[in-house]
Structures are given as structure tokens and as C-alpha cells.
Simulated scan of single mutants.
Amino acid sequence: MKIQEIIVVEGKDDTVAIKRAVSADTIETNGSAVSQSVIDQIKLAQATRGVIVFTDPDFPGEKIRHTITQQIPDCKHAFLSKEKARPKNGKGIGVEHASPESIREALKEAHLMSEQASSDISQQDLLEAGLIGGSGSKERRERLGQILSIGYTNGKQLSKRLQMFQISRDVFIDAIMQIKQEEENE
């Protein structure tokens, strides 16, 4: 599978994992303090070929994603669940630990994030769906992020993430119904 866009990753181990899964070029941020020269490379890549931001599902990865989105808002984003980003021994988390199949799947699901988007999903909807303020809400948010391919976020940021990815009310309701059905079948 060949990827036209340039994939932004955190480091060289992520590049190695990407190249095991697909034919693609990468830009490495080399940590969460993204330098201006890396931002300039990403801007050029976005202008010429497009960019997919593919960072680890942890705080530093989200920080990198946020930094890039602020300066280059029209990038695509790909996400891995924490479960798919853990090595077999369970130590650490990152793109470099994901299977080639998980990487290909995440890249296929990459989509645009919009800072200006609005959503008709209210805080009350999130509360009623059990995504905030209750027992099991973290697990439901993790599962919602997997289903919608928008990554995991905490309760405070969930509404913003749904807006940024322009998740419609119908798609949100379908995902919540899937989660509830899975919980009933456990």
C-alpha cells in the first residue's frame, strides 16, 4: 500500500514501523517540542503532497498533534488505540509497537480535523451516553474514539474533538448504540 501524503511521526522507531506497513515518506518531530524547522517542513509537505499526523496515543503525542493543528490546520489525522499501540510485554505505548495491519487500518481511516467546525452534540448528550461524569465513562470514550477513528480524549476535550472531526449527531448516536450493544453482550 502506497501513501501519497507524508506521515508525521514522533521518531525514527515510528518511521521504521510505518515503512514495515506501507510505502510512505515520513517527517519525524523528534519529541513533543516541535521545532520551527519541523513545522516549516510540515507546511511544505502539506502544500505539495498533503500530511497525515500519526502520533502516539498518549499525552506527548496529543501535544504534538495540537501544536501541528494550530499552525497547519488542514492536515489529516490518523489514530491508534492504546490497545493497538502497546507491545506484547505491555511496557510503553507508541506507533512503533503497532502491527503493520493496525498501522494500515489507522492510515486508511485518516481524516481531516477542522478548528472551525460546529456540532449538534451537546454536553447533555455526552452525559446521557455515559461518556462523562460516571462509572465506565473513560472506557466508553476509548471505545467511541476507536469506532469513530478520532482517538481517545478526556471528558473535557471530547466535545471539542467531536466538533473538530465534524461528527454528525447520527454517526454519534450509531456509535453509542454500538457501544451499548457491546456492553450488553459482555
Rank of each mutant, 00 (worst) to 15 (best):
M1S: 04
K2R: 14
E5W: 01
I6W: 08
V8R: 02
V9E: 06
K12C: 03
K12Y: 10
D13N: 10
D13T: 07
D14V: 06
T15Y: 07
A21S: 07
A21L: 01
S23W: 00
A24D: 00
T26H: 06
I27G: 02
T29F: 11
G31M: 12
Q36C: 02
Q36N: 10
K43G: 09
L44E: 15
L44K: 12
L44F: 11
L44S: 05
L44V: 12
A47S: 12
R49F: 13
G50A: 09
I52P: 04
I52K: 08
V53R: 06
V53Q: 02
F54P: 01
P60W: 12
P60N: 06
P60Q: 08
P60Y: 08
G61Q: 04
E62F: 05
K63W: 00
H66S: 12
I68G: 06
D74K: 09
K76P: 04
A78N: 08
K82M: 09
P87E: 05
K88Y: 00
K88G: 15
N89T: 08
G90W: 09
K91Q: 13
G92C: 05
V95G: 02
S99N: 05
I103D: 00
L107P: 00
E109Y: 14
M113S: 07
M113Q: 13
E115P: 07
E115M: 15
E115I: 07
E115V: 05
A117H: 03
S122A: 09
Q124L: 14
E128K: 15
E128I: 03
E128S: 09
G133F: 10
G136Y: 00
S137P: 01
E139D: 14
L144C: 03
G145P: 03
I150C: 04
Y152D: 12
T153W: 03
T153D: 07
N154R: 07
G155A: 14
K156Q: 14
Q157D: 13
Q157K: 10
S159Y: 02
K160P: 03
R161K: 09
R161A: 01
Q163C: 15
Q163M: 12
I167R: 05
I167P: 05
S168W: 10
R169M: 03
R169T: 01
D170H: 09
F172R: 06
A175Q: 08
A175W: 10
M177Y: 05
I179T: 04
E182H: 09
E182L: 09
E184I: 00
E184W: 08
N185W: 00
N185A: 15
E186S: 14
